[in-house]
Write a protein that binds this DNA or RNA. Sequence first.
RNA 1: GCUCCGGUAGUGUAGUCCGGCCAAUCAUUCCGGCCUUUCGAGCCGAAGACUCGGGUUCGAAUCCCGGCCGGAGCACCA
Length: 487
Amino acid sequence: MKKEPVKGLKPLEGAVEGKVVMRFAPNPNGPATLGSSRGMVVNSEYVKMYKGKFILRFDDTDPDKKRPMLEAYDWYLDDFKWLGVEPDRVVYASDRFPIYYDYARKLIEMGKAYVCFCEGGDFKKFKDSKQPCPHRDQTPEVNLEYWEKMLAGGYEDQQAVLRIKTDIEHKDPAMRDWGAFRIRKMSHPRAEIGDKYIVWPLLDFAGAIEDHELGMTHIIRGKDLMDSEKRQGYIYGYLGWEYPKTLHWGRVKIHEFGKFSTSTLRKDIEAGIYSGWDDPRLPTIRAIRRRGIRAEALRKFMVEMGIGTTDVSISMESLYAENRKIVDPEANRYFFVRDPVELEIDGVEPTVAKPPLHPTDSERGAREIKVENKVLLAGDDVEKMEIGSMLRLKDLYNVEITSLEPLQGKFAGESLEALKKAKGRIIHWAPVDGIPVKVRSPDGDLEGIGECGIAKELDKIVQFERFGFCRIDAVSEEEVVAYFSHK
RNA sequence: GCUCCGGUAGUGUAGUCCGGCCAAUCAUUCCGGCCUUUCGAGCCGAAGACUCGGGUUCGAAUCCCGGCCGGAGCACCA
């Protein structure tokens, strides 16, 4: 039996329209990256497809190694808004410790969890040799006592941990009696939480409880969490719950960006190496937003990538191609010359050039650029010139180069045919009284001069002809700052 | 060490569960050509892949076994 090729995301197994509940559960220890956007887009897309509920859950239960960043909570909300996704519910795991503690107590009472005092290495030895550790057989009563003492601060950091009892002889060592809570006498960055807790749930525990509590029907997550289902399955079994349907995807690498870790990035930002989390050199959502990548392009890109457990190594080119399709028809055209060189032209009368704002949409009208007898050319173009070179200043007139230093030329008519005959290039230019433009790009910052009209395009995407698409980020009397999108 | 996944063109994907319609889809990339007062867009054309070896079968990208390669888990990180 053959199926029709499915456009977009494949149907979700067992999904019923109106009943699907899915979540995206980041640790807000840094802003969303292109990698995280996969989860943001795909989960929300499925929910939309099935008219279900979408939950944003902040898994912010580590005050230490992956300590949440206070601003990042809002950044996530903001990025979702940008993506056009309104979560039906936003949950903070750090608000829900009482729930986790209740279930912990319940499991202890059932004899399915115990307080373990082994040092890390010791437990590993027992576990690796399929031996129960000395604490495994404590009675529920004793465990409860220890647990209360843990919560009351009776033990120091690392001294005790609550484990879920699974099967100490399980053939897969990853399944054997895994840790559910640990002690860390640290405050939580959220003011509401602060010093309230010293016993923190670990991912597999908190996640297991939450996914059930929040009524999740389907979970899509990284394949690094593939074992979670089997581990958490013990809890679901003990409590008689049904596990959601799961799907996994592999790692996403991006050619253009090297390896980034949130912690080193943070240091680099603090050290001023990057201007912030939205520095155009970074693979964060905030950065690509600022660069003028459209949410729709990102969504399409992620949806087309789909869900596969294979690790993928993607190129920004595909995302750019997607974005270009959206942005090209909208973007007004302007001249921007990088590393400008002044060209003086003999034999011309002052005039006004009127290049169209858009090459295929004449209704948009034209820019007006006054020209006396001097213009600015891009340094790159000038380097290729020789004396006698024929060239055309786009939407102006032809010039023949008569001197290189200083750069001078003479008027050479307005005929395009003549230019073609002479095999001249058409190049862009800028008026000598143009506005300084700073372009911030993934490859670093560039300086140049652009038409004054650019200043009217704040927050818009424009195309600098023969240069690329940019988002106009800031405009002041003396300067325009543009963020480079792509060619 | 133990345990789990996965491997389709440069890249990403469809097809794999339920073998034949797959001499393998789509997108991007690359290469030609057309068009264009942008090296953008558009149009036309072309190139490019089933990890390897066995097995089952009339027939295998699809099922089975093994190798190779890649990834992941076994943490008081998420």
